[in-house]
Design a protein around this nucleic acid. Sequence first.
DNA 1: TCCGCCGGGCCTGGGGCCAAG
DNA 2: TCTTGGCCCCAGGCCCGGCGG
Lengths: 340, 340
Amino acid sequence: MTRRQAPSQRDVAELAGVSSQTVSRVVNNRTNVDASTRERVLSAMHVLGYWTNGAARALATGQSRSFGVISFDLSAHGNARTIEAIAAAAADADYSVNIVGISAPTEEAVQRAYTRLTSQAVDGVVLIEARILDTATVHLPTGVPVVIADGDPGRSFPAVDINQAAGARSATRHLLDLGHQTVWHVAGPRDSHAALRRAAAWHATLKDAGRTVPPLLFGDWSADSGLEAGRSLAAREDVTAVFAANDHMALGIIRALHEAGRSVPGDVSIVGFDNVREASCFLPPLTTIHQDFEAVGRRCVELLLHQMAGEGSGGPTPGTLATIMPRLVERASTGPPPGP
Amino acid sequence: MTRRQAPSQRDVAELAGVSSQTVSRVVNNRTNVDASTRERVLSAMHVLGYWTNGAARALATGQSRSFGVISFDLSAHGNARTIEAIAAAAADADYSVNIVGISAPTEEAVQRAYTRLTSQAVDGVVLIEARILDTATVHLPTGVPVVIADGDPGRSFPAVDINQAAGARSATRHLLDLGHQTVWHVAGPRDSHAALRRAAAWHATLKDAGRTVPPLLFGDWSADSGLEAGRSLAAREDVTAVFAANDHMALGIIRALHEAGRSVPGDVSIVGFDNVREASCFLPPLTTIHQDFEAVGRRCVELLLHQMAGEGSGGPTPGTLATIMPRLVERASTGPPPGP
DNA sequence: TCCGCCGGGCCTGGGGCCAAG
DNA sequence: TCTTGGCCCCAGGCCCGGCGG
């Protein structure tokens, strides 16, 4: 069979016996079309199976009704949840979402991604800047609204930010309040904004409380890296409390502790970060910091829409920061330190 | 500040003192441009910060160099991994990926999503049809290549399919081979293709082996639903082997068993499905069926590209089926049944 | 004269074809 | 033969003008 050519407004116009301009009006729900004319056009559209050509409309209007999302590691839990929320919020505003993944955390890769997106004529971009780039500032070609999620809020773009410090602080405080002398920390990778901010807040909280701060361990977010860190933790008698920078590493740590015959929370308490959906079914159920990824996604598109609206009318918001607060959810992996 | 208008080929042409046609040639890397002319054009492009307008190009060429992906539940583990792989494979072929989520498993929702995508002028669509639609056949407007992933391979579209039956069979057989009299199954939701196919294969395997088949339990993929199913399983003395339709439900089941004082795998063996990255850190490390989501994603874009290439030249592949084989990975959650 | 409905012409940014230098 | 420019087309949208009541 031969490839069926998509019908154009002209075809519809011809069949309905009107001008293509009238068809355009009907398509865009203009009021100044006679009811019977609209009816004829509509049925002609239906007969022909007409659907509006997005490329042509985008060209004519200068708007594509789509947003771009740039992200590392699309399948990482937090990113996947955030993207899902962005897609949902965008759909509500009748926008679609164009995803591009980044393999290496270099500015060049971000540039390429941005380029790919602008060549798709997106109306806005959200950059999920989970990793630190190799240069201090991304220099994005201007012209398209940008929002940064999960990145360095010090940038000159509007950003939506989960308050990592508050989350890490409440995790650490929770453990201290339980009576632990100090708390160990297994951080995420060194090139992660979130990891660094959590580690810094853990450090500060310990300092403020006048506690000694134990050496910092690093993982890569994976359960396996948590397992490894957990093994070195398990080798020391003096650790009674650990704050893991995410739930999966916490899982690995728990397994390591378990293998070493230390009980959780009897001998050592653990708190994670993320509140992964299955955290309540860990053994033991994990105390962790809940992050509201859905809110992040929603705020991202709100900020984008807001920038687009403000454009030209002395637009506001060149540096806005929307902060989402995480919260502690207590389950069974934490308790008082073992008696002497 | 006023909104800077994006420069066009015409602007570049003017600055470089050539025709816009020549600029077009340079942009598209045509060979028939004099080196010095190309140089002038290139530098003019650079000065102006020119970038090609995707909408205009799409209109002129009829190709947008982007694919659409329709999926339920973007953040579900398997879907997220598949989408990531699609995005990567698409990027390799210099395509970008337009995501649209579906909330309800109705054909109407799929139609809307498809409509949204075609209005974005995508060159192909992959439908991750994890849920069963409310009508037997999706009737997609023709004109754009479609590939179905993770859905009903009986459709008239090319599909890439993980062999769910083979996976479920090897899970069940593994348990039987270990000496268990029969194996219980906690299935995914009733409206899931994958869940149904796994359950059917479990059933058939038991029948073939002449075993009694215990009542089927249903969950919804979540760990919490696994917990619930696990509790009813734990209430019966005679269950020694359980095949869970995914790893997260397996986690919930393990927790339920643990709470009931039954050991895994001492008293009851468990195998999951997915091979989630952290499965090796469960307590105990989970025996499960590995699914190669990356392969699925890659094959999807291969099939799309293939359809696009075959178009017109007596195109082949109107019903192709690419099958990906899952495999059992043995860890510590399975063993022989307890002695009498 | 004003208003509701409709069509003509031109514009969006680029690409293909063809002829000319 | 190789380079280059003119012209028209892609599919729609907007401005403006016209027609009729």
